[in-house]
Each structure stands twice: as structure tokens, then as C-alpha cells.
């Protein structure tokens, strides 16, 4: 049973050239020069009901254009898509009743009012019958532990509290599919974990299909089973997250700041990428040595001032994918 089915979906935009100077602006006003820009090349994929999919790619890869087509905001140039059995751009309003969206950087909550008021508004917007709404609201309040904040003005809430309310607001109408765009952006580690737990729980209990875009490798690893990576409007990888982890998230980078000059490190799979005085950058092949082992070595042998651990950036992963799959690179 599929929740989303996309076939041969493409989208191109007509972009206008802007010319410099007053004469230029006048000229482009009357005789605009345009250029065709392909945002999404023929795209094919299917998402099953209840699946949790990570949809990744660098900025400008066509992620948001695809999401906009799937929610019916944009009409495709060609191809077809079906979301929950609806044609998104022909039945946008009908589809909207079954779709939830959380855009990490765009709040749905009303700033000067407590979240409970936004919930009331959502009930009206999604035309939820009164009894059903109250039951659902109390359920979400309990599960997301919103009780203490429910009647506090949004402007007085912390970012994490706000994000929990934000997600709850998007779930009131029991959407069958939820689009999550950077749901943990700007949150600290503990709060991130909490949000991820909640999202996972919701997927397990209600069978909601989740469509997630994020720059946070942690989000992807902990939430998703499957990942689609797009670049230049094309799917370059469609695989399970565990496969991707094994093949492409093999290295982590550790940045160290030490109190004194370090002795050499000799662990399998650990290489010193850069060393300058007391600053050090290590690359760890996690298949050979776990990150815990490396850290405990560091703690016992070095005088540590500061440490950060990084996953490979999206750009590095993509270069990697191209190397492995041999698909046309950049």
C-alpha cells in the first residue's frame, strides 16, 4: 500500500535575466530575456504507508520544489504524482485535510498567545468536530508533556518547548502523512533527542508516513529506515539508512583542542588529518574503531581543552556517492 507514488515528475522554471542600470531595467520590462532552469529532472519513487523517509540533498537540489509539488503548491511541468490517492495539484484542498507539515523555521503558533489558542484555531481550520478535537488534544498534550506550557504565551517558551507544541499542532487533525522540514534545527542535543523520540513514537503508534528533510545526520540515523538523496533534481541514491550508514557515513571527524602538545595516536582506522600546535583534526573510520574507543583513548592520554565530533557534510557524502555509483558527477 503506497502513500506517495511519483512517476516521471519534472519541473522547470523560467528565470528572468536582470540587466544592470536604468536602461537595462526598462529593457527587461518590455522585452524580458528568459532562461529555462530545470529544478527537478524525471523523478521516480514510491513511499509506503507508515514508512519514514529521509529526503536529503544540498541546498538548491530540488528538495523543496519536490515537496511543494507533493503538497499541491506547485504544478509539475510533466509527470504524475499521487499522494494518499489524491492528485496533489488538482485536489489540493482535499489533500490538505490529511497532510500535516512542520517547517522548522516557519512557526504556526501565534506569538502572543498560549499554544492552546493555536490548537483551537487548527481545530477550526481542519474542521475537526469538537469532541474529537478535545480528545485528540488531551492525548497529544499528555504524550508531548505539554501540560505546563499549554497556557503560557508562546513568546515565553523555549525553542524546544515551542517545537513540541509546533509538532502537536500539526498532528491535531490526525494527518496520514507529515512533512517535516528541519524539525530539530537550532535545538540542543537533549531536546533534539526528545523530539526524535516523539516523532518515532507517533510513527509507530499511528502508522503515519513521515517525509523528513534535515541537515542533521542524527535525525536521519535515528528516525528513518530509508533515504533518498537528490542532487541537481535527480535521485542519486535510494537505499536503506543502514546501508547508507555502512557505505557513506563511515567516517567521523574529531576536532581537538589540547592543553599541551600531543603524543602520536596509533589506533586502527584513525588518521591525523591536520595538526597545528595544540589543535588537531582526526578522521575516524568507525567500522574499524568505534568512536567510544577513540574518545576514551583521547581522554586518558591527552589533556583536553575542547572536543567536537562531526559527521561528514552532505557535500562529502554526495561526492562519495558519485564515486561509488559511478553516476555522472558534478
Amino acid at each position: 500500500m503506497s502513500s506517495v507514488r511519483v512517476q516521471e515528475l519534472t519541473k522547470s522554471f523560467t528565470v528572468k535575466y536582470k540587466q544592470a542600470g536604468l536602461a537595462g531595467s526598462l529593457r527587461s520590462l518590455f522585452a524580458p530575456q528568459t532562461e529555462e532552469k530545470v529544478a527537478v529532472q524525471p523523478l521516480d519513487f514510491t513511499i509506503e504507508q507508515g514508512e519514514v523517509l529521509a529526503f536529503l540533498g544540498p541546498n538548491g537540489a530540488g528538495k523543496s520544489t519536490t515537496i511543494k509539488m507533493l503538497t499541491g503548491i506547485l504544478h509539475p511541468t510533466s509527470g504524475s504524482a499521487e499522494v494518499l490517492g489524491f492528485n496533489p495539484w488538482q485536489e489540493r484542498q482535499k489533500l490538505a485535510f490529511h497532510v500535516g507539515s512542520v517547517f522548522g523555521q516557519k512557526s504556526q503558533l501565534w506569538y502572543h498567545l498560549p499554544p492552546v489558542d493555536t490548537f483551537e484555531l487548527m481545530a477550526r481550520i481542519y474542521e475537526i468536530p469538537r469532541g474529537e478535537f478535545l480528545k485528540r488534544r488531551d492525548q497529544l498534550v499528555e504524550r508531548f508533556e505539554l501540560g505546563p506550557y499549554l497556557n503560557t504565551t508562546v513568546r515565553k517558551l523555549s525553542l524546544g518547548e515551542r517545537m513540541r507544541c509546533e509538532i502537536a499542532a500539526a498532528l491535531l487533525h490526525r494527518p496520514q502523512i507529515v512533512f517535516l522540514d528541519e524539525p530539530t534545527i537550532g535545538l540542543d542535543v537533549v531536546v533534539k533527542q526528545k523530539i526524535r523520540d516523539l516523532i518515532r513514537e507517533m510513527n509507530r503508534e499511528e502508522g503515519t508516513t513521515l517525509f523528513l528533510t534535515s541537515h542533521d545526520a542524527g535525525d536521519v540515523e535515528q528516525l528513518c529506515k530509508r533515504v533518498i538523496v537528490i542532487n541537481h533534481g535527480q535521485v542519486i541514491l535510494d537505499d536503506s539508512v543502514s546501508n547508507m550508514k555502512r557505505e557513506f557515513l563511515t567516517h567521523k571527524t574529531i576536532h581537538l583542542k589540547l592543553a599541551e602538545l600531543p603524543q602520536p595516536i596509533a589506533l586502527p582506522g584513525v588518521t591525523v588529518v591536520k595538526q597545528k600546535g595544540t589543535g588537531m583534526k582526526l578522521s575516524v573510520d568507525t567500522a574499524l574503531t568505534s568512536i567510544e574507543t577513540v574518545l576514551s583513548f583521547i581522554v586518558t592520554h591527552y589533556k583536553l581543552v575542547d572536543v567536537t565530533i562531526e559527521d561528514p557534510s552532505m557535500e562529502e557524502i554526495i561526492t562519495h556517492i558519485y564515486e561509488r555509483t559511478g553516476k555522472g558527477g558534478v
Partner: peptide
């Protein structure tokens, strides 16, 4: 979906009301 007129009116009235309170 029966988006009756009453539901529609209730929807936009709710938007108006929440704006008043927010402002």
C-alpha cells in the same frame, strides 16, 4: 468532505478572533 458554509464561517471567524487576541 462537507465543508458547509457554517464550518467555513466558523473557520475564518476563528482566524479573526485569534488575530484580535494576538494584537
Amino acid at each position: 468532505r462537507v465543508s458547509s458554509l457554517a464550518l467555513q464561517v466558523a473557520k475564518y471567524t476563528a482566524v479573526g478572533k485569534i488575530t484580535v487576541r494576538n494584537n
